[in-house]
Write a protein that binds this DNA or RNA. Structure first.
Lengths: 145, 145
DNA sequence: ATAATAAAAGATAACAAGGTCTTTTATTCT
DNA sequence: AGAATAAAAGACCTTGTTATCTTTTATTAT
């Protein structure tokens, strides 16, 4: 698995929020967990992290819940990965060597660097909004249920 | 991390064996663990798996130990990954969706497929012997110490 | 045969990731 | 103010991976 489960849940949750929630229509953890099929309390933890980093807006009390403001919807996927998992993956050697760099590359260094670079680019360019648009257009699917 | 620690250890151990061991000069777990800096018993387990799958030849008793025959040295990296971790990574969705395929792709499906394909190709084409050659030529490094 | 050597095998421990539960705090509505 | 709602916070449990330890089995040399 490329990313942790937490990151996967986070990305899918954000797309869900971008599509379904707004300042005037906040959505609570319970409903989200049910709709997305995620464990409720685990999702709570993830949303807590996302709220601290201002990726989502949270509010307590009746009619409380979460939503994303327009800025946040333009966040790249990679910025979400960064918040939850960190970006360690992108500077690690494919063979797990601690000393592996341009000067002393491991036997798959060069190609692996290219692979990581391409992936980084993809995840940097794609935003939550892009994903939402793809879903609306019907060119991508994400199976909430 | 792309692969498990076991797979990383396995690959590095095989390159080490390709370079240093032979039918007439078998190397034991203790020496390998020391040279490579891996936990001895953990390495033992990995070598056991590799021996079962005929990637290495093992023999007990005095002057026992491990070596690779020439066939095995031409193994691809991917075949080692397959033995230890399996190839699940290569048919999994980048977002962890269970239903994600050409018909119902997730929003990053297409590009992610390409990356996985490229990586698979790289790991399929590169053999243990290739890595050994790179190290001998001095175009790659692997920091046995 | 016996002793020494070395891998195989199995049991167990340590740790991290994933997931659950309970209590606390903040907000809203009556 | 008080009751209800909902997130925040923290403690705790479960599972899987990583690592270690001990016993058994096979081989070799004396």
């Amino acid at each position: 698995m490329l990313f942790s489960r937490s990151t996967e849940y986070a990305i899918r949750t954000l797309v869900y929020l971008a599509m379904n929630a707004s300042e005037s229509h906040r959505i609570g953890i319970k409903k989200m967990a049910k709709d997305l099929g995620f464990p409720e309390h685990f999702l709570g933890k993830i949303l807590q992290d996302l709220a601290k980093k201002r990726v989502v807006v949270s509010s307590k009390g009746p009619h409380g819940g979460f939503y994303m403001d327009d800025d946040a919807k333009n966040r790249s996927i990679i910025s979400v990965v960064e918040i939850i998992d960190g970006l360690g993956f992108f500077d690690q050697c494919g063979l797990g060597l601690c000393e592996c760099n341009e000067d002393k590359p491991c036997p798959i260094h060069k190609n692996y660097q290219i692979f990581k670079g391409d992936l980084f680019k993809l995840l940097s360019e794609k935003t939550i909004n892009d994903m939402k648009e793809d879903l609306i257009k019907g060119v991508a699917f994400m199976n909430f249920e």
